[in-house]
Design a protein around this nucleic acid. Structure first.
Length: 606
RNA sequence: GUCUCGGUAGCUCAGCUGGAUAGAGCAACGGCCUUCUAAGCCGUAGGUCCUGGGUUCGAAUCCCAGCCGGGAUACCA
């Protein structure tokens, strides 16, 4: 056992787990599987640190649960140095771990600058995380925010678990949806540009996407009025024909269409850059669908030649997935143009050619579960050995009280607007509370933004990614309670205490002597701190930033109770004072690291 | 129709690889700022864990059926 026990709680649990197996053997002469050993953290209302559930063993002991627990407790107390004493409540054996042990845990945590973080090594796995993946026909909204925050945070968490991570973005910069905006701009744009209107480029293009839909709907209504069936009307309305023609021309590299496309895309990219920067997300490598769809087309045609796919009379290309229990899937339209799936095949091929990827993760909404199931099968059929190993990180939708957001219907919460509003709320709150007196306007502005984004990011990340979540624009995101600002505030409090201690000339001794007897609350806090590496690991194993968020909240809540009840600087016993300050500093560091994994910064003052 | 995900306090969410009296926050009500930041702390109230069966010493958690809601099943992405 190395002296550097990063996952302390786990190592003590491992020791105890082992010893319980031996205890059963020694007491009852039975060999048991470690899986029967159920350990849990002792509930706060009972004395103890780790609890064993003894019910599974009463069959072997042929004694009452209480007596069985006592037998095992006796054995552990005798044979495991860290087990100081025990008590039995019904069928639960509560083990009290020695204070020495907890002090050593604190010392380790306090001295480790990267506490909770496992650095990558030469043999680390290379994980590529795709997230964001915007369409270049409209601005980002709240749903994209969830995607971006999850993708960024997941990447950070995977890095903290010793992986090498490449963050990537596939920009969906071609396709019928883009052509709709382009067509609308050409028809009704009157030469509008971001420059001559003062509208952010992605918003301007988005306006034309909405305009397209409005006109399209009018045309359909008119055609139906003239006696067309609704299906015919949808297929033959002038604007949809115009958009389709544009897509054909685009794939045929028509110079005029390409120029229009480039111009409008540049507007969008300039807009996205601003939004990404404000959100604090970034990418190591960007792929463009306008490039990769061609590789995808190649692969589909190869599949056709090799008999993996088939062609219908109208020359559309399909995959037959009935053997997999699925349906027919179209891969190339009858006019030869590509669909969404086509480009994803090409993009995957490119990525695995560009990097020695061990694990590919797609951060994409759960509405596309079927898509990724199919993609995996198609890549496998095409002979790519990575096909089966793709991982779709499938997250839930953000819903409004009225239901789903729809770009075309304008019922979206715009990302830029939301951030701006939250920064405004943050500024007002800070000013009302007078927290930043003495800060320059620039310093204050940085802090407002930090708090606003902390509120937004924590709000999005604290819920289980798999679940749909509700956002009510009527009630602005809270700054009190289980929120980002509450956690940031606690960090600022700790920093403030440490600054004041320094002002008073108190020098922290980072090594706590074993003889010091911490109180119950300090012990409780050390235990919570000791769980941080476990939380990071579980967040990585389960791909869940929410586990980090929930952990940090627990830690912060515990600390605030402690803060309220016990003086640190004013504590007269200097050794106890030192313990408390070192503990506070360690908790501050843990908060900062944890929040960093969520992509949230913490302020020195607020 | 089929597949899939979900249903926990008035609201938003934890807990779900089975374990002790189901937890937080918000909202409501009542306390606490001459002492390290009150964006905080303490307390009160609030529950058929959708329903019904089953497995188990033990079920919010696992299995089956049903009800309700979301999503997918497109020559949209």
């Amino acid at each position: 056992m190395s002296s550097n026990f990063k996952a302390t709680k786990m190592s003590i649990e491992l020791i105890i787990r082992d010893q319980i197996v031996e205890a059963i053997e020694s007491c009852y002469e039975q060999k048991i599987d470690q899986k029967l050993v159920q350990l849990q953290n002792t509930r706060k209302e009972f004395e103890g640190d780790i609890t064993l559930v003894v019910f599974p063993f009463v069959r072997m002991s042929k004694k009452s649960p209480e007596q069985t627990a006592a037998d095992i407790g006796d054995y552990l107390q005798k044979n495991v140095a860290e087990v100081e004493k025990y008590n039995v409540v019904k069928g639960f054996l509560n083990l009290v771990i020695s204070t020495d042990y907890w002090i050593s845990v604190l010392n380790e945590a306090a001295s480790d600058l990267k506490y909770g973080i496992t650095e990558p090594t030469g043999s680390s796995k290379l994980v590529m995380v795709e997230y964001s993946s915007p369409n270049t026909n409209k601005p980002l909204h709240l749903g994209h925010i969830r995607n971006n925050l999850l993708g960024f945070s997941l990447s950070e968490i995977l890095k903290a678990n010793g992986n090498k991570v490449i963050k990537t973005n596939i920009v969906n910069d071609r396709g019928i949806h883009i052509c709709k905006s382009m067509y609308a701009w050409e028809m009704w744009g009157n030469g509008q540009t971001p420059e001559n209107t003062g509208i952010k480029g992605d918003h301007l293009v988005g306006n034309f996407y909405v305009r397209f839909d409005q006109e399209y709907k009018k045309e359909i209504a008119a055609l139906i009025e003239q006696g067309e069936t609704s299906e015919n009307a949808e297929q033959n309305a002038p604007s949809i024909l115009g958009a389709r023609e544009m897509l054909l021309k685009w794939e045929a590299k028509d110079p005029e269409v390409l120029e229009l496309w480039k111009m409008m895309n540049q507007w969008v990219y300039a807009g996205f850059d601003i939004t990404y920067k404000a959100l604090g997300v970034d990418f190591d490598k960007i792929y463009y669908e306008s490039e990769t769809y061609l590789y995808g087309k190649d692969e589909v045609l190869r599949g056709l030649r090799e008999g993996v796919f088939y062609q219908q009379e109208d020359s559309s290309v399909w995959a037959d997935l009935t053997a997999e229990g699925l349906d027919q899937k179209i891969l190339l339209r009858s006019d030869g143009t590509s669909v969404y799936m086509t480009q994803d095949i090409g993009t995957a091929r490119e990525r695995f050619q560009d990097y020695p990827i061990n694990k590919m993760i797609y951060v994409v909404g759960n509405e596309q579960n079927y898509h990724f199931q199919v993609l995996s099968i198609l890549l496998d059929k095409l002979g790519f050995e990575f096909g089966k190993g793709l991982h779709h990180f499938s997250y839930g939708m953000v819903e409004l009280p009225q239901g789903k957001m729809k770009s075309r219907e304008g019922t979206v919460v715009d990302a830029d607007d939301l951030m701006a509003e939250m920064i405004e709320v943050s500024r007002k709150t800070s000013e009302e509370l007078g927290k930043l007196e003495g800060y320059s306007p620039e310093q204050a502005a940085i802090t407002y933004k930090m708090i606003a984004l902390g509120a937004l990011k924590y709000f999005m990340l604290k819920v289980d990614p798999k679940k749909n979540m509700l956002f009510n624009p009527e009630e602005s995101i809270d700054f009190n309670g289980n929120t980002g600002p509450f956690i940031q505030y606690t960090y600022a409090r700790i920093r403030s205490v440490l600054r004041k201690a320094e002002d008073k000339g108190i020098i922290l001794n980072p090594h706590i002597e074993a003889e010091i007897q911490p109180g119950l609350k300090e012990l409780q806090l050390i235990k919570t701190v000791s769980q941080f590496p476990v939380a990071v690991k579980e967040a990585g194993d389960n791909y869940s930033p929410a586990l980090v968020a929930n952990y940090v909240y627990e830690l912060v809540k515990d600390f605030n109770q402690f803060y309220h009840e016990f003086p640190m600087i004013a504590e007269e016993n200097s050794e106890l004072r030192n313990l408390r300050l070192v503990l506070a500093e360690t908790i501050g560091k843990t908060i900062k690291t944890g929040m960093k994994l969520l992509g949230i910064d913490v302020p020195e003052r607020m």
